[in-house]
Measured scan of single mutants.
Amino acid sequence: MIFPGATVRVTNVDDTYYRFEGLVQRVSDGKAAVLFENGNWDKLVTFRLSELEAVK
C-alpha cells in the first residue's frame, strides 16, 4: 500500500522517470503525486498507482 510520505520507485519502463525514486505527496483516484528532488530542482509528477512500487 502506498501512502503520503512513502518513498516510491517508478516501475513503468516506458516512462521518462523509470527507476527514479521520490516522495509521495498525495494519493487519490488511483493516482499518486510524487515529488522528485535533485540538487537545485524539484518536480511533482502524477503516476497511476500501478506504475509505482514502495521502496523498502
Results as ranks from 00 to 15, higher is better:
Asp14Thr: 11
Gly30Pro: 02
Ser28Asn: 09
Ile2Arg: 02
Val8Tyr: 01
Leu35Glu: 03
Lys56Pro: 14
Phe36Gly: 01
Asn12Ser: 08
Ile2Asn: 01
Ala32Tyr: 05
Asp14Gln: 12
Thr7Ile: 13
Val24Thr: 02
Thr46Ile: 14
Glu53His: 05
Met1Phe: 11
Arg19Ser: 11
Glu51Ser: 07
Tyr17Glu: 02
Gly22Leu: 03
Phe20Gly: 04
Asp14Val: 08
Leu49Pro: 03
Asp15Leu: 08
Phe20Asn: 06
Gly22Thr: 01
Leu35Ala: 06
Phe3Asp: 04
Ser50Gly: 08
Leu44Asn: 04
Gln25Leu: 15
Val27Lys: 02
Glu53Asn: 04
Val24His: 00
Ala33Gly: 05
Lys31Phe: 14
Phe47Met: 05
Glu37Met: 14
Ser28Met: 12
Thr11Tyr: 03
Leu35Pro: 00
Asp29Arg: 09
Met1Val: 09
Val24Leu: 03
Thr16Asp: 10
Arg26Leu: 11
Gly5Glu: 02
Phe47Glu: 00
Val34Ile: 07
Leu23Asp: 03
Gly30Thr: 05
Leu23Ala: 06
Gly22Glu: 00
Tyr18Trp: 06
Val45Gln: 05
Arg19Asp: 10
Arg48Val: 09
Val10Pro: 04
Thr11Met: 09
Asn12Gln: 06
Val55Ile: 11
Gly5Leu: 04
Thr16Asn: 09
Thr11Trp: 05
Arg9Gln: 06
Asp29Trp: 07
Trp41Tyr: 10
Gly30Asp: 08
Phe36Leu: 09
Ser28Leu: 10
Leu23Gly: 02
Gln25Pro: 00
Val55His: 04
Leu49Lys: 03
Val45Gly: 04
Arg9Lys: 07
Val27Glu: 02
Lys43Gly: 08
Met1Asp: 13
Arg26Ile: 11
Leu23Gln: 09
Asp15Gly: 07
Val24Ser: 00
Leu52Trp: 02
Phe36Thr: 00
Val27Cys: 06
Ala6Phe: 07
Val13His: 08
Lys31Trp: 15
Gly22Met: 03
Thr46Pro: 03
Gln25Thr: 13
Pro4Ala: 09
Ser50Pro: 05
Lys56Ser: 13
Arg48Trp: 15
Pro4Gly: 04
Ile2Phe: 07
Leu49Val: 09
Val34Gly: 00
Arg26Glu: 13
Leu49Cys: 07
Val27Ala: 03
Leu49Ile: 10
Lys43Ser: 10
Val45Leu: 08
Ser50Gln: 09
Thr7Glu: 04
Val55Ala: 05
Glu53Ser: 06
Asp14Pro: 03
Phe3Pro: 03
Thr7Trp: 15
Thr11Pro: 02
Glu51His: 07
Val27Asp: 00
Asp15Glu: 05
Arg26Thr: 14
Arg19Phe: 07
Arg26Trp: 15
Leu52Thr: 00
Tyr18Arg: 02
Val13Glu: 10
Asp15Gln: 08
Thr11Ser: 07
Ala6Met: 15
Asn12Glu: 04
Arg19Ala: 10
Ile2Met: 04
Arg19Asn: 14
Leu52Ala: 00
Val13Gly: 07
